[in-house]
């Protein structure tokens, strides 16, 4: 299966790679089920079978109790905005047409947080604490990025 711009995704790639119009994430073996889930419209995270903590970013061992008894679960994809910023400068000058964009940290209902892009609502403003829901932006055949919009 082709995933994240690579035929053989078991080979780690230490850096993110800029592509035409988007950026491929670094490929880390622990996180492949997460990225595969995104392609299937599933927001996956791990849970520790020993201490019950939700684990994100994906790990080989639970960072809270060091157990390797981790299993994948599927988030409902709902949560609230913890923080955000509306960005008016593009990382790469050729992407300025996509501005302004909002990036932020979302607190998921299952008890973990993630960095993401937030859709800027028409006619209103983003606020800390607002309820949001995930959607998957299929930026390429082999990459879907989870993003959030007001629920």
């Amino acid at each position: 299966m082709k995933l994240l711009g690579k035929e053989n995704t078991t080979r780690p790639d230490p850096v993110a790679r800029k592509a035409d119009g988007f950026t491929y994430p670094r490929v880390s073996p622990e996180a492949l089920p997460y990225w595969e889930g995104c392609l299937q419209n599933e927001l996956r995270y791990q849970r520790c079978g020993d201490c019950s903590e939700p684990v994100f970013h994906p790990r080989a061992v639970c960072p809270y109790c060091l157990s390797d008894n981790l299993s994948w679960e599927c988030s409902e994809g709902v949560g609230e905005i913890y923080s955000f910023s509306v960005q008016y400068v593009a990382l790469y000058p050729e992407r300025e047409g996509n501005l302004p964009r909002a990036v932020g940290i979302v607190a998921l209902k299952e008890g973990y947080h993630m960095f993401t892009e937030l859709e800027i609502p028409v006619g209103s403003e983003l606020r800390v604490g607002q309820k949001v829901r995930v959607y998957f932006d299929r930026v390429a055949d082999d990459l879907a990025l989870p993003k959030f919009r007001i629920d």
């Binding site: 988007f22 910023s85 992407r95 990036v103 960095f115």
Partner: peptide
Amino acid sequence: TDPEFEQPYEPIIPAIYAQIACR
């Protein structure tokens, strides 16, 4: 920025620091 979970969203460093200012 995190090459797996932040960089695909192409934040500039001010947008990362702005998360703290927002909070």
